[in-house]
Write a protein that binds this DNA or RNA. Structure first.
Length: 316
DNA sequence: ACCGCACCCTGAGCGC
DNA sequence: TGCGCTCAGGGTGCGG
């Protein structure tokens, strides 16, 4: 799940593959929700363009092109942006993995999940965008053009000031975890780092946001930035799909305190990590290190998990 | 205005 | 072996 750290690691590694190079051709896949700009338009407009800089805002990557247009890339849940020549089992379908002899790892070749292939005029390695679930987004902005998705973003989580969080929690009754996931509050926080930061700050994820004191908000923001900076140092979190653009796994998975550790002992106090559902997302926390404080509010969350009907009645 | 939740998508994993 | 169900979640948009 690419969040700010994974996108930042991607930005740092992709920049040398992109900046200063001129696109020779852009090969796209069939139209889908992924293309906010139609694929045929990308294929037509990108060739001849040279990238001047690769920037990041929250979980978005923005390539500034020489004609002042901008290519916007969001990795969604399963998006992978990587250089030609990268090798990783995470770039292969499970059937292809299973067919591999042990230790063998062939170079990536584009498959049906590869939605954009950039080839460059210098003949060097290309750049691929692959996204199995198609929750990612590709968008080409004309000079001066903007997009509601970008306009809505709050300050980048890495550089935000505590005052931002203190102001935005005021009067809010929703769980602080749900507030953290709102990209208009802090851009870049996703499910993993929300859980990790709340644990680090010792704040229960179900606490009502408006109940947090100013010092708690400041502590939480410090925690967000600390876990993110540490994750960037280790190359991000590889759980299922994420790989660094050179194909290597990120290293933060081994350092996580709570995420996907239900039932395992808290590294601080040994208490078993618990899981509940907040804002429709699985939420992991240590019941000892992260005291609720608002038992009444908590009651809404510790009841039996309600599950949405799946595969239910559908019109024929 | 605020908040919870269904939806988009696909593959892994599991039970039968 | 294979089918069907469940689950994962970033972000949007709708309904209460």
């Amino acid at each position: 799940m690419p969040e700010l750290p994974e996108v930042e690691v991607t930005r740092r590694q992709v920049a040398p593959l992109l900046v200063g190079r001129t696109v020779a051709s852009a090969v796209t896949s069939a139209p889908s929700h992924l293309f906010l700009t139609p694929p045929e338009e990308l294929s037509a407009r990108l060739p001849g363009r040279r990238t001047e800089a690769l920037e990041r805002r929250g979980k978005y990557l923005l390539a500034r092109l020489d004609d002042r247009s901008r290519l916007v890339i969001h990795l969604g849940m399963t998006g992978q942006l990587f250089g030609e020549g990268a090798t990783s089992v995470r770039l292969l379908a499970s059937t292809a993995r299973a067919a591999l002899p042990p230790e063998a790892l062939p170079g990536f070749s584009p498959d049906r999940h590869t939605h954009l292939r950039l080839h460059f005029a210098d003949g060097g390695p290309g750049l691929f965008f692959r996204d199995v679930r198609k929750f990612g987004k590709l968008l080409l902005l004309a000079p001066g053009e903007t997009h509601a998705r970008l306009e809505r973003l709050g300050p980048d989580a890495l550089s935000a000031e505590p005052a931002v969080l203190i102001r935005r929690v005021r009067g809010r009754r929703l769980a602080v975890k749900a507030l953290l996931l709102n990209q208009s509050v802090l851009a870049g926080v996703g499910n993993i780092y929300a859980d990790e930061a709340l644990h680090r700050a010792g704040i229960h994820p179900a606490r009502q946001a408006g109940d947090l004191s100013a010092p708690e908000c400041a502590r939480l923001l410090v925690a967000v930035q600390a876990v993110m900076n540490r994750s960037i140092e280790t190359g991000g979190t590889s759980i299922r799909d994420y790989v660094q653009p050179d194909g290597r796994d990120g290293g933060f998975y081994d350092e996580r305190a709570v995420y996907a550790r239900r039932g395992e002992p808290c590294r601080t106090c040994g208490t078993a990590i618990e899981r509940l559902r907040i804002g429709g997302r699985s939420t992991h926390f240590c019941p000892a290190c992260q005291e609720g404080g608002v038992k009444s509010g908590l009651a809404d969350f510790v009841g039996p998990h309600r599950r949405a009907p799946r595969g239910g009645v559908r019109g024929s």
